[in-house]
Computed example of a mutant assay.
Amino acid sequence: MRLLLVEDDAMIGEAVQGLLRAEGHAVDWVRDGLQADAALRAQRYDLALLDLGLPGRDGLDVLRALRARGDRTPVLIATARDAVAQRVQGLDAGADDYLLKPYDLDELLARIRALTRRAAGRAEPAYELHGVTVCPATREASVNGQPVVLSAREWAVLEPLVARPGVVLSRAQLEDKLYGWGDEINSNAVEVYIHGLRKKLGAGFILNVRGVGYMVPKP
């Protein structure tokens, strides 16, 4: 997934960015509200992790502007503002969830998975088809009951496909889930990971729509 991290604390930002990248996500990190607003206008994200007390422009103003232009990007507020009134204010401004600092990193990952699953219109955590089961929530996959180990990059390609079964995603759309700002893009990376996924999950699990992109069938 492609995530926007909005955090002005360097230590927290580095830790969270490292964690999310280790999970296979592409992460763009900005440190003030003006940069956050510009990034959200320029790039489509699967989720924004938004601090509130930001230089330049307050996080609530960034959130209100996002919703005012009809952008439905899931927003998880992560902040030290712990008063009930402030939490209500953030949720009423359009946030999808609220996480107080200091937070547990495992809980952060779980909330991100829940929000992105909800945004894709899927309540169930697992995708099943022809003996293949994929559970992005636990990063577990199996074929006919036998566990299959997938790399973080393979998950990064697979997750957007199983989140929207029946929808064709282009190579550029899948690359967008693999690379953040400044990352060197390998021209055939998507094809390499698709090939690896087909070897592990079955040749027909991911379909190639010639000239358009890739999809997994609807269960």
Rank of each mutant, 00 (worst) to 15 (best):
L3E: 05
R64I: 11
R117I: 02
N188S: 15
G24L: 04
A123T: 09
L76P: 08
D51P: 00
A141Y: 04
D106W: 04
L91D: 09
I77F: 11
A189D: 13
A26G: 06
E175H: 11
V16C: 01
I112V: 10
A114M: 09
G13E: 09
N144T: 05
G90N: 09
G145A: 07
V143T: 06
A38G: 02
Y214K: 02
Q173N: 03
I194Y: 11
E175L: 11
G13I: 02
A152C: 08
L178I: 03
C135T: 15
L129C: 08
D9Y: 00
N208F: 00
E159K: 00
R67E: 09
A36P: 12
L60G: 08
M11Y: 11
G202V: 13
L19T: 06
L161D: 06
R139M: 05
D8S: 09
L63S: 07
V157W: 08
R69E: 11
L54G: 07
V157C: 01
G131P: 13
P165L: 11
Y103V: 00
V88K: 09
L169T: 00
V27R: 12
R67Q: 06
A22D: 09
L169F: 14
K101E: 00
R64W: 10
A152G: 00
D8W: 01
L20G: 03
A163Y: 04
L50N: 12
R81K: 06
V168T: 15
V162W: 03
H195G: 10
K218T: 13
E159A: 11
D61I: 00
M11I: 14
V168C: 05
L201K: 04
L129D: 14
G33Y: 02
I206R: 14
G202M: 10
Y214S: 10
E175P: 03
V27K: 07
A152W: 04
L178N: 01
Y179M: 10
A10Y: 14
V143P: 04
E159M: 12
V143K: 15
D92T: 00
A114H: 03
G213M: 01
Q146V: 11
V157L: 09
G180W: 01
V212H: 08
L4W: 12
N188K: 15
A152S: 13
V6L: 11
L60A: 11
D9S: 03
E191V: 10
W29K: 00
G204R: 12
K200R: 11
R31N: 09
P125W: 09
D28W: 01
